[in-house]
Design a protein around this nucleic acid. Structure first.
Lengths: 390, 390
DNA sequence: GCCATTTAGTTTGGGCCGCGATCAAAATCG
DNA sequence: CGATTTTGATCGCGGCCCAAACTAAATGGC
């Protein structure tokens, strides 16, 4: 639970309407084609007249459509409303160091066609802008629907104004990706940090709103994203979640950062893999007799224990029991989760944290979360669907 | 920075007025007798007509008064507004295991008379209700002003509905303190967890709003409170900040909880004191030759290093550089802070966390924070004063 | 088969709110 | 002493939500 502490801005009647519009759209979205105006009025507490008015404006914006009502029970049959998925769509992209994965998603959060293209080696911003520009154009053209906005997940630290402050993976510092892109494309382009994107994606799979989730993103580095009570927490200098160089007391290896014992020395992807390849992780749950595989399994266990220690601390500090793991390590599967859970059990009473899990959308989670962020930015609404629908 | 993610409630014109009323009151409060209606209009962006109307209602509620305007410059002289400190006051109390400290505070956050009374040994809820009832009545009678509300800091875990779920220090489980008290006293009684109260107090000393702070409260146990972007974070089961049994890898002692290495085994008050008394901490900065004192100083250093490790992790996860220490250990003074800072320097690049500090209001911080919570609850406004004013 | 009943959605009048313009009051400046 | 400037009150307007009345379209009982 949170408590707002200070009002900082005046409120005008216009804000009022905007908020209630969001509320109605959200209700339509969650209702998934089952809510009529009267239902929305009952569910939100808004007067029917107001709901009708707002729905009319949403239909004018091609965000909501009326379906044909099949009478059920007495009374005039209701006209069910659903989000208009025919006229507009969102684009989403996951910018990775060597490639871009992108796709189209409907306003209901259902993923349409997707694709990927390679980036040139050590891409500069201009390269990425060029690739994204043509890729997104092509996706939009193939889809046919108008584009409402695009969301792009980037492996970078972002300023509140959407500038890329730094990306270690892309070796960028202080560049503007969103600006040129939205100028070229003609619609809003929303950037999200990749770990945050995963968190947004998870949030959009929680059935109720205002939830909390911690995402651990394990790749070349270890990053995490924190959503507290439905709010993304970025920290005072947008550095929240930089947990790679925490010493949780499970290693005494020297880290390239100069200190020893950093989490990254045992739990980032290179540390886990050693000489092995990412594909080898698939077999790590039953390593058999192969000594290389057994060593890999050992390293996975060690990483799991370290991550377990981190999760413990996070859980004690924040009391968020939902922990999501994402990144290529997903391929290690249950073995990694088991190791984490084992460490949790050792350190905390069982009730405190649920077993961590991998991200719901797997390889698409960053992309999907970027779309969710774009949706939120554009319409002020987030999907809250069960995983099987999205 | 945070981003609200979902609208859950309808907004009505009444809410609008309430919010803007808060905004105006807040502005008057911060202005500290220097803001006129016109100033408020300019500062908030609200039309002068609206500000006048709201000010009128605030004056009718005896929350704001007009002062005599001294002309300065051209034009009709402005009538400065200030918070009305003559008609109403707040009561505040700090419930400790063996005593209650309480006092009166004006609507401007200025502390008036204070006092303390002993509690019977192992007090039950009824004892505490009796003591608080008569103590607060007496304070109010001596003060003469009407009581707007009372805030009570309690060493307990609270439910969102203000019930006391559990207090280890008071040996209470599932009791209702606020209900009977406010029924007896006739005004709202707001309970706050003691660590949270310290955090609220610190927040009310930050000059700008929406700040973040981490409070470590070190006494018999170790608790912490987290305020993120101006919101108290309590966690999914109101257990956020239960850091006493984290293993930060600086101890291998057995803890009474059954595990080993818990922070409490080296950093809670009993662990620090050993055979020494709280008063001995005063001398710990220059222990001299006394072997007992030198041993105590050693233990303070060890506790500091452990706390430093915790602060490191918290800082990495949350990126909140402002860390406040409260509790009897305050008497260890700079020696404790030095030890913490040393550990921080060892573990993190210098820039990441500021040197921790003790709570601004010292022994009064819990009480003061409780008052701040009551103020927030009652008027939706928090003081944001510089320390010397409050 | 017809009419009362029920439910959905629209229309209407009213109240609250914030806004901008207008106006009187009270100071300063030339 | 009048023009100017600033404050604060008053008033009419438009936006928004609400409750009630009204129309539309189904069901069910007689």
């Amino acid at each position: 639970m949170t408590k707002a502490i200070r009002i900082t801005e005046k409120v005008t009647p216009g804000v009022l309407r905007e908020r209630n519009t969001r509320l109605v759209l959200q209700t339509v979205l969650i209702g998934d084609g089952s809510m009529s105006r009267a239902d929305i009025s009952r569910s939100t507490g808004l007067a029917r007249a107001v709901v009708s008015e707002i729905v009319e404006s949403l239909m004018a914006q091609h965000l909501v459509v009326e379906e044909v009502g099949t009478p059920s029970g007495r009374g005039k049959p209701a006209k069910p409303l659903r989000v208009d998925t025919d006229r507009q769509c969102l684009l989403m992209a996951d910018l990775r160091p060597t490639e871009v994965v992108a796709g189209v998603v409907g306003l209901d959060g259902v993923i349409g066609s997707t694709g990927r293209v390679d980036l040139p080696p050590n891409p500069g911003v201009d390269d990425v802008i060029r690739v994204l520009d043509s890729f997104l154009r092509q996706l939009a053209a193939d889809d046919g629907r108008a584009v409402l906005a695009a969301g792009v997940a980037v492996p970078a630290m972002l300023s509140p104004e959407q500038g890329i402050v730094e990306s270690i993976q892309l070796r960028w510092t202080d560049v503007d990706l969103a600006g040129p892109l939205q100028e070229a494309l003609g619609y809003d382009v929303v950037l999200v940090n990749d770990a945050t994107a995963v968190a947004m994606s998870e949030l959009s799979h929680q059935s109720q709103a205002g939830g909390s989730v911690i995402v651990l993103h394990i790749a070349g580095g270890i990053g995490s994203a924190i959503i507290l009570d439905g709010r993304v927490h970025l920290g005072e200098r947008q550095r929240a979640g930089e947990v790679g160089h925490i010493d949780v007391g499970v290693s005494d290896r020297r880290c390239k950062c100069g200190r020893t014992g950093c989490l990254e020395t045992v739990a980032n992807l290179p540390a886990i893999l050693g000489d092995a390849s990412v594909e080898d992780l698939d077999a790590v749950s039953s390593p058999g007799e192969d000594p290389a595989l057994r060593a890999l399994a050992e390293r996975v266990d060690h990483a799991g224990r370290s991550l377990g220690a981190l999760v413990c601390v996070q859980a004690a500090i924040l009391d968020i029991p939902d922990v999501v793991i994402d990144g290529p390590v997903r391929r290690a599967g249950a073995r990694l989760l088991d190791a984490i859970e084992q460490e949790l059990a050792r350190r905390l009473p069982a009730v405190d944290v649920r077993r961590p899990r991998f991200s719901t959308m797997a390889d698409q989670s960053k992309m999907h979360g970027a779309a969710a962020a774009a949706m939120l930015h554009e319409l002020g609404v987030l999907w809250h669907s069960s995983p099987d629908r999205a």
